[in-house]
Simulated scan of single mutants.
Amino acid sequence: MKTILLIPARHASTRYPGKPLAELRQKDGSVKSLIRMTWEAAQQVRGIDAIHVATDDARIRDAAEGFGASVLMTSPEAANGTERCAEALAQVEADLIVNLQGDAPLTPPWFVEALIDRMARDPDAAVATPVLRCDRRTYDMFIEDRKAGRVGGTTAVFDRNLHGLYFSKEVIPWIDPAKVPDPVPVFHHVGVYAYRPDALRAYARWPEGELERREGLEQLRFLENGARVACVEVEARGRVFWELNNPADVPRIEAVLREG
């Protein structure tokens, strides 16, 4: 099974323009761009035959090629990372496509490897994506963002067979603040996907759904069209996971890097 990993990256982010080129200070004091950190994270994943940055922006292309990445140019019309991956698919051949979004440099390799394994074992799954049970620190960051009016990470709910029921930028399910249990029954959706080629091509043909538009979450288009999204529960193994969604996330991620 030929598996390629794509890193979709755009410069014109609504919440954080130029985000892929945002610089983060490393533990040793050096500085690396977000897109470079994500590319380096991708290098650690086993079972990948090729890695490409998919972008529509010459600045991101030049930066990526500068640190040795292969780049596929896509159109500026792509509405989200999944559409950009669907465009890039026309330029490559693959049996499985992994989307490691360019704002997730803290993604451990075993998160991605778990998706590849799930897709190999579940031929009915069109898409697979990781979910991570929140520890109290991560849950508190979710609540802090919502209180501050920031749209931060995404949460997921799924059925007993780990098929996705819904994804939201709200913290779901709701928990009484005075009775937060341990472990916290909230799952952080990790913004990584594995797609079968037919599912990715179908996604590009479907119009934007109402829930997708309201939440701003690309994966809801699959659910709105009846495609099965397999949620794969992963473990942090002591690592802290968080995406760079807003400028406020830069110090959070840099703090994690200092601790690492």
Rank of each mutant, 00 (worst) to 15 (best):
Arg214Pro: 01
Asp176Gly: 08
Cys231Phe: 13
Gln43Glu: 14
Lys19Val: 02
Val98Ile: 15
Arg15Met: 06
Ile116Lys: 09
Gly47Lys: 07
Gly68Val: 02
Arg258Cys: 03
Pro173Ile: 06
Ile60Met: 02
Ala69Met: 02
Ile60Tyr: 00
Ala54Thr: 14
Leu96Val: 01
Val240Ala: 13
Gln26Tyr: 00
Ile35Tyr: 02
His163Trp: 10
Pro185His: 04
Lys19Gly: 08
Pro8Arg: 07
Val171Leu: 04
Arg25Gln: 13
Ser33Tyr: 01
Val184Met: 05
Ala230Cys: 11
Val53His: 10
Leu257Met: 14
Lys32Ile: 01
Phe111Arg: 08
His52Trp: 13
Arg121Cys: 11
Ala156Glu: 05
Ala128Asn: 11
Leu5Gln: 11
Ile116Gln: 09
Ala236Tyr: 06
Asp56Leu: 01
Pro207Gly: 12
Arg84Leu: 05
Gly47Cys: 09
Gly260Ser: 15
Pro108Ser: 11
Ala248Phe: 05
Asp135Gln: 07
Pro20Cys: 08
Leu200Tyr: 09
Lys32Arg: 15
Arg59Asn: 07
Arg84Val: 00
Arg221Ile: 11
Leu24Met: 14
Pro20Thr: 12
Asn80Cys: 01
Glu212Pro: 04
Ala78Asp: 07
Lys147Gln: 13
Pro173Ala: 03
Gln219Ala: 15
Gly29Pro: 01
Ala230Leu: 10
Glu212Tyr: 06
Asp117Glu: 15
Tyr139Asp: 08
Ala178Pro: 00
Ala156Phe: 04
Gly29Asn: 08
Val229Met: 13
Pro247Gln: 03
Val53Gln: 10
Val171Ile: 12
Ser13Tyr: 14
Ala90Met: 02
Gly238Met: 11
Val112Cys: 08
Arg160Asn: 06
Asp249Met: 07
Arg239Leu: 14
Phe187Gln: 04
Ala104Trp: 01
Phe222Lys: 03
Ala54Pro: 02
Val171Pro: 00
Ala41Cys: 04
Ala126Leu: 10
Arg137Cys: 04
Val250Gln: 12
Lys27Gln: 15
Val92Leu: 03
Val186Gln: 03
Pro251Gly: 03
Ala63Val: 00
Ala22Thr: 15
Leu72Lys: 02
Asn246His: 14
Gly29Glu: 05
Leu211Glu: 05
Ile60Phe: 00
His189Met: 13
Leu220Gln: 03
Val131Leu: 05
Asn246Met: 11
Val127Gln: 14
Ala9Gly: 06
Arg15Trp: 04
Glu40Leu: 12
Glu77Asp: 07
Met1Ile: 03
Ala199Thr: 12
Pro185Phe: 05
Asn245Trp: 09
Asn225Ser: 08
Leu6Lys: 13
Glu254Ser: 01
Glu218Ala: 15
Phe241Gln: 14
Ala204Cys: 04
Glu215Met: 12
Arg25Trp: 00
Ser30Asp: 03
Arg213Ala: 13
Glu113Val: 07
Gly191Phe: 12
Glu235Gln: 13
Leu211Thr: 10
Asn246Gln: 15
Ala12Phe: 06
Gly153Thr: 07
Ala202Asp: 13
Phe142Thr: 02
Gly153Ala: 12
Thr74His: 00
Thr3Asp: 05
Val184Trp: 11
Gly164Cys: 14
Asp182Ala: 04
Thr154Ala: 08
Gly47Val: 04
Asp56Pro: 00
Glu215Arg: 10
Ala22Ser: 14
Leu5His: 10
Thr14Met: 05
Asp176Ala: 08
Met119Cys: 12
